[in-house]
């Protein structure tokens, strides 16, 4: 599959995950979020950027449980819970936010 980002074609897999993580940019993130039906707010970006930092450090996209705990630690308890994260990313914070962050699907997600 491919995504059209301002005239530039970006390769994705059949589920819409970016094929090449290094191609990621804010514009590409926005294009993926539109395809996912998400209107990106600062709160969305905060989670997306957190995921990218986590990947940079550990070379994996964390499982939802791990993401929730880590967000809570870094951004506070009011954000480190699944209600808050599912409100931002209704189809699953790990799946949708990872997709927008240009990361592979979290290990263990089907």
């Amino acid at each position: 599959m491919a995504l059209d980002v301002g005239g530039k074609v970006v390769e994705t897999d059949e589920e819409g995950y970016l094929s090449n993580r290094d191609e990621w940019s804010n514009e590409i993130a926005k294009a993926i979020s539109v395809a996912e039906g998400i209107d990106m707010s600062d709160n969305h970006w905060e989670v997306v950027n957190f995921l990218r930092e986590y990947y940079e450090e550990y070379q994996i996209a964390p499982a939802v449980r791990v993401l929730t705990k880590a967000i809570g630690k870094k951004l506070g308890k009011d954000k480190g819970n699944s209600k808050y994260l599912y409100e931002l990313f209704p189809y699953g914070p790990a799946k949708q936010a990872c997709k927008i962050a240009g990361l592979p699907k979290p290990t263990g997600c089907v």
Binding site: Y58, Q59, I60
Partner: peptide, 14 residues
């Protein structure tokens, strides 16, 4: 090849 050794440091989170 991917250096997957940093991932062992995430095991504590799991």
């Amino acid at each position: 090849q991917k250096n997957f050794s940093p991932t062992y440091k995430a095991l504590g989170d799991y």
